[in-house]
């Protein structure tokens, strides 16, 4: 196998590819620049903005954000691959994050996770066929006084019992957290990128193993 030479001066974003970062997303990312001495430091906020807007961070988005922050795409991927919060493949509209730390487990957290898996018929870091739900597990959600707990998107559900899981997941409003919100990380509403019920295009999907 011959080594392929990479010309670092080549633009990193393919000229023919359809851009995924809208002007609104770019504007939001750029608004973080004055906060930090370096552009690279904006990477984590930028990834949050992208994931909130698009649902996940694919190859094309990684390249574009690299371009915006003037770093190499591999540096973006390097950072993404370290953190469990970022999805590099499409995820469901709602992500159910179940806590599996010791306090929750002592109070029945394992049964809750099993109930969520059974009810949705998928495993950890998988998405249902209709694109409605994904399951994630987290080490500690810091809700130990209300264990077992789980998050549906940003809403924390406390003292969940395995028997309550079907009703909880059937409730359409299970992700509304009803608190006043700051608009800093609220992604712009994107309708054209994500069709109802169908997972967004998988062309720029990165199959990444759950970092272990």
């Amino acid at each position: 196998m011959a080594w392929k030479t990479i010309d670092r001066n080549e633009p990193v974003v393919d000229a023919g590819a359809t851009p995924v970062l809208t002007e609104a997303i770019r504007g939001k990312i750029e608004s973080f620049f004055p906060r930090y001495p370096t552009k690279r430091a904006v990477l984590l906020p930028a990834l949050h903005v992208i994931q909130d807007a698009l649902g996940f961070i694919g190859w094309q988005a990684m390249k574009e954000v690299a371009d915006l922050l003037e770093i190499h795409p591999s540096a973006v991927f390097d950072t993404i691959s370290f953190y469990t919060h970022f999805w590099t493949k499409p995820r469901g509209e709602k992500v159910v994050t179940v806590c599996r730390s010791i306090s929750c487990e002592l109070l029945g957290g394992r049964e809750v996770l099993e109930a969520v898996k059974d009810h949705l018929g998928i495993g950890e870091h998988e998405t249902t066929g209709d694109g409605k739900y994904s399951i994630a597990v987290e080490e500690c959600l810091a809700g130990c006084d209300h264990g077992p707990c789980l998050l549906v998107n940003e809403r924390m559900h406390k003292c969940v019992k395995a028997a309550d899981v079907p009703a909880l997941l059937a409730d359409a409003g299970n992700a509304d957290h009803g608190l006043p919100r700051s608009d800093l990380f609220d992604g712009p509403v994107v309708d054209d990128d994500r069709d109802d019920g169908v997972i967004a295009s998988t062309s720029d999907v990165v199959e990444m193993q759950d970092s272990n």
Binding site: A41, V42, T79, S81, Y83, E138, E139
Partner: peptide
């Protein structure tokens, strides 16, 4: 004085002070 919130992304080791600093700089929290 300016105060900004920097959100992490799910890594225990970012609670270690130099891991936190690396993460703040946009890198892996090593």
């Amino acid at each position: 004085l300016d105060v900004y919130v920097h959100r992490g992304a799910g890594a225990y080791v970012c609670g270690e002070e130099t891991g936190l600093i690396e993460s703040l700089e946009g890198k892996r929290g090593w």
